[in-house]
Amino acid sequence: MSTLEYEPITIEHLYDDHHAWLQGWLRHRLGNAADAADLAHDAFLRLLTKPRRFDSAPEARSYLCTMANGLCVDLWRRRRIEQAWLDVLAARPEDLVPSAEHQAIVLEALLEIDAMLHSLPPKVANAFVMAVGCEMTDREVAEELGVSTRMVRKYVARAMLYCIRLDARQAVEELPHGVPCSV
């Protein structure tokens, strides 16, 4: 078995040079030291799992900034979903509040669904979640959203196509490639 021929990516160097300012930058954006530390950690973890070569410090900096910005947006979306879920629960009469276990299951599913649908227009995403998550008929969804049943059908098909393409692309990206086959 041959050892690694290519130059090792010096993640330690990157970390030394960029971790402090990245964390500061994140803290500035997020207004929270703990979140900033977590996201800075996540950013370097991603670099570890998907190594990249940088030819200059500014290049690394701008890449890290872009990645960290994406992580911030993800975090904000998560927080928004969590808050909306808490708000909805708070507005329910006590005997209708689901058990802690159900609450956690729902939240996790919502976060996953939101991560999948967040680029879709809200109406399309809402119709899709109602139709599939609540197993409502097109007529029921149409009434709730104030659109025609034909529109609901279109929304559902559009959201599903979007998700299929997303998944298919991911599946292809995740295929191991460029790895020499061992006999």
Binding site: R77, R80, I81, Q83, A84, W85, D87, V88, L89, R92, L96, P98, H102, Q103, I105, V106, E108, A109, L110, E112, I113, D114, M116, P122, A125, N126, V129, M130, V132, G133, C134, E135, M160, C163, I164, D167
Partner: peptide, 25 residues
């Protein structure tokens, strides 16, 4: 993709979940 909705489908709180999703959106 449908399987990702399974935790909601059987859940008594699914309507609440959907309103939370709408609210966040």
């Amino acid at each position: 993709i449908s399987r990702r909705f399974e935790p909601l489908q059987g859940n008594p709180a699914r309507r609440a979940a959907v309103s939370a999703f709408q609210r966040a959106n």
